[in-house]
Design a protein around this nucleic acid. Structure first.
Lengths: 273, 273
DNA sequence: CTTGACCTTCCCCGTGGGGGAAGCACCAGA
DNA sequence: TCTGGTGCTTCCCCCACGGGGAAGGTCAAG
C-alpha cells in the first residue's frame, strides 16, 4: 500500500485532470510525494488521495485555489467546517442578490410599459440634521436604516429636540453587494443637540430637488430601481444633478402596499441651456 | 440630446469601466455610435445607455458576454425573458447541487468517525435483464429511476414475465451536474420478452461483487457517496474493479429511514497478489 | 527491440477584465 | 498662443484555472 501512483493513475482515482494536478504541484497545493529527478516523473502516494478528492470537491463548488489551500491548512475540522460554511453562506447571499437583479431585468422586459413615475420638483429648505454615516452592503441595508433612525431619534428626543416623522437616507455611494456606500441616515430636528459617538450634527443647505413618490410595493429592491431611473432621467433632461440621491421617508410605514411611503429625490440645478 | 458622450462620460452613466467598454467595442457587443478616424476617440450616443445598463446588470449576475450578446439580439422581450429565466433556473440548479457537495464535505469533517459500512462479497448469477439506458444529469436522477423501473415492469408484466421486487441501476458514467452517465436501469426477469422502443433485453454474466448495504437515510446524495467510497476502497484493497458500480434495490422503499433499502455493489476480481 | 501508452515541458487559447506606461487630444486659462 | 491638466488612445503584462496540442523523453509488455 505504500506504492507510488503515477500522475495518470492518481488522476483517475481522484477525478482531477492531469493539467490540474500539474498546476496544483506548481502552486504547492498538492505536491507529489516524490519526483524522479532524472525524468521529472511525478509519483503520488495513496495517502494523498484523500486530500486530492477534497480539492476536487471544493473546486467543483468553485472555491478559489487560494481559499482551498487555506481551508485545508486548517488542522481543526470544526474550524474548517465553519470556514466552509461561512464561505458557502456568502455564495448563497450572492445568489439571492443576483436573483433581485434578474427580477429587475425581467420587470423591464415583461411589463414594458411600467407605470410611469410622477417626477415633481420642490424646494427643500435648509435644515439641521442629526446623521449617522456608515458603509453598508446591500444585504444589511434595511437593518441599518431601521437601527440608525432609531438611534438618532432616541438621542434627539433625549436631548429634547423637536422631531417629526420625516427622515432620509443619502446614498453617497452605490449600495450593492460589491459596493458599500457610504450611506448617511439623516433625521432633521429643531433645537440644540450635541453630537455623540457616531452621531454627527450638521446643517444641510437648501436645494432644489426632483423627486418621485413611491409606494411601499415599489420601495423594495429591485423595483425601486425604476424610480431611481425615472428621477435620474428626468434630471438629465432638465439640468444636472448637484449631489447624491436620497430616499425621503415622510410618513410611518403604511399597511397598504400601494400607499405612498417615500420619495426618491435628487438635488439638481437647471441646465443653462 | 443627440450629443455624443465620450467614453468616460458614458462609463459614468452606465456603471461600466473604461476597460470593459473598450472590450465590448472590440467584441462587437457594444460598438460606439461613432469613432473619430483620426484620433480613435470613441463617441457613444445617449440612446446606447439603455443597452449598456442591461449589459452591466447581466454581467453583475455573471452571465457570459456571449450569452448576453445572444440575449440582447433577441428582439421579442417575451422570448428574451424566457431565455433569461431559463439561464437563471440553471444557475439555481447548480447552486443546489453544490450545496450537496458542501454538505458531503462537512459530513466528512464534522462526524469524522462516520459509521463504517459493512462491505460483503457475494456471487451474482447470470440473469436476463430488461434495461433502459439514458443519459441523465444528477437533478433528474430520481425521476428517471422511478419512471424507467415503472416502464420496464409494465412491459415485463404485460409480456407475462416473472419479476420480483429486485432491480438495479448501473452507472456506466458519473452522474453529476457536469456529467450525464450513461445510466442503465435494469429489471431482471424469467421468461421470454421482446425488446420494444428503448427497452433492451440482454444477458448479464455472473460475477463476483463487493457490496455495502445502506439505509434509506444513507441513500440520498451526498451521504450515499460515503458508501461508494467504502466499497471502492475495499475493492482497491482486495483486488480491482471489473465493471461500473451499481445500486441494487431488493425491497420496497421502507417507511423507516434507518431500514435497509439497497446495496452499493461493485463487480471485482481478486488481486493476483 | 519495438511499440504503444505514458510522462515531461512549452506555448497558445479562452474569459473578463485590472494596472499601468507611453504617447496624443482636448479645453480652459493666462 | 502657450501651457497645464485631464482625458483618450494603444500596448503589454497580470490574475485564476485550466484546455488543447506539439515536441520529445520514458516505461513496460510482447
Amino acid at each position: 500500500m505504500t506504492e507510488h501512483l503515477t500522475i495518470g493513475a492518481f488522476a483517475r482515482r481522484t477525478g482531477l485532470s492531469l493539467k490540474a494536478l500539474r498546476r496544483y504541484d506548481e502552486s504547492g497545493l498538492l505536491v507529489p510525494d516524490a519526483v524522479d529527478e532524472r525524468t521529472g516523473y511525478r509519483y503520488y502516494s495513496p495517502a494523498q488521495v484523500n486530500r486530492a478528492r477534497q480539492i476536487s470537491l471544493l473546486r467543483r463548488v468553485e472555491m478559489p485555489l487560494a481559499q482551498i489551500a487555506d481551508l485545508l491548512a486548517t488542522s481543526d475540522p470544526v474550524a474548517a467546517s465553519e470556514t466552509l460554511l461561512g464561505w458557502w453562506a456568502e455564495q448563497e447571499r450572492l445568489l439571492t442578490h443576483r436573483r433581485g437583479t434578474v427580477d429587475y431585468l425581467l420587470d423591464q422586459w415583461r411589463r414594458a410599459p411600467e407605470e410611469p413615475f410622477q417626477v415633481e420638483v420642490r424646494s427643500a429648505p435648509e435644515r439641521t440634521l442629526a446623521t449617522i454615516t456608515s458603509r453598508v452592503l446591500q444585504a444589511d441595508l434595511v437593518a441599518t436604516l431601521v437601527e440608525n433612525v432609531h438611534r438618532l431619534r432616541e438621542h434627539l428626543t433625549a436631548s429634547e429636540a423637536v422631531v417629526t416623522e420625516e427622515w432620509w437616507a443619502i446614498y453617497h455611494g452605490v449600495v450593492s453587494p460589491d459596493s458599500d456606500g457610504p450611506l448617511e441616515v439623516c433625521v432633521p430636528f429643531e433645537g440644540l443637540v450635541p453630537p455623540v459617538g457616531r452621531i454627527a450634527i450638521r446643517i444641510e443647505e437648501g436645494r432644489t430637488e426632483a423627486y418621485a413618490p413611491i409606494s411601499a410595493a415599489q420601495c423594495s429592491y429591485p423595483r425601486i430601481l425604476h424610480a431611481y431611473d425615472a428621477v435620474t432621467d428626468w434630471v438629465r433632461r432638465h439640468g444636472e444633478p448637484t449631489g447624491p440621491p436620497r430616499e425621503v421617508y415622510r410618513v410611518p410605514w403604511p399597511e397598504d402596499p400601494t400607499a405612498y411611503v417615500a420619495d426618491i429625490a435628487l438635488p439638481y440645478r437647471e441646465a443653462p441651456w
